[in-house]
């Protein structure tokens, strides 16, 4: 055959022709193997995590920490066990951090009665505490703001850029990590709803 249509193959070997003639059997074999594989994997599935490891990644336990707030009072993540928590890492020199602060404050005002906890963590190792205090006052922030003077907590949460926002479910498992911003209020509320409903 000299002229080959774009949809035409070259000649098929007889073994392949026989294979195509018996395709009904091939279908059955594939489906039987598929069912067998599903059954084997269901019975021998390894547990995803045998022990809850603390890691800043979706599906792992959020690393616990204790930091001082601007008034010098100590606050731990463990204090909010059983509540959905939004951790927001920020600094005064970061423009998207500034842009999303009013939305964080609005989400806090709207949903704090429903159990939403928003915690701001100032990267004090890269910031000036006095400027941070002025920032809090200017934006009228009423949710807890903690200071991270050594950057240890930011390191534990693998914060590579600001802002970084970590969503933690009531059972302490990280629901989502969002690097960058600004995060709109609608997103914060939608994520809160997901965390409450246990949406993966």
């Amino acid at each position: 055959m000299n002229d080959i249509h774009p949809q035409s193959p070259s000649s098929l070997p007889p073994v392949l022709t026989r294979f195509l003639h018996n395709f009904g059997r091939v279908q059955l074999v594939f489906i039987a193997l598929g069912v067998a594989w599903l059954a084997i994997t269901a019975f021998t599935a390894q547990p995803a995590q045998s022990a809850p490891i603390q890691l800043a990644q979706k599906g792992f336990m959020a690393p616990d920490f204790s930091l001082l707030d601007t008034a010098g009072q100590e606050t731990s993540l463990a204090d909010f066990k059983g509540q959905a928590v939004i951790l927001n890492f920020w600094a005064t020199w970061c423009p998207p951090c500034k842009a999303e602060m009013p939305d964080l404050q609005k989400a806090h005002t709207l949903q704090k009665e429903q159990g939403l906890v928003i915690i701001g963590i100032n990267r004090t190792d890269q910031d000036d505490p006095a400027e941070a205090a002025a920032f809090i006052q200017n934006f009228g922030l009423t949710f807890p703001i903690l200071l991270d003077p050594t950057g240890k907590v930011a390191q534990a949460y693998q914060v590579s850029a600001l802002p970084t926002t970590i969503f933690i479910r009531p059972d302490g498992i990280i629901h989502k990590v969002i690097v960058g911003g600004p995060l709109p209020q609608a997103l914060l509320l939608a994520e809160f709803q997901q965390m409450q409903q246990g949406v993966p």
Binding site: I178, A186, L187, L189
Partner: peptide
């Protein structure tokens, strides 16, 4: 589809509908 799933989240801030955030 995101808005349809979480309409309450947009009640007070309809402008968020236009947010370029990939998480939405």
């Amino acid at each position: 589809s995101f808005i349809a799933r979480y309409p309450g989240a947009f009640m007070n801030n309809w402008l968020s509908v236009l947010s370029p955030n990939l998480a939405m």
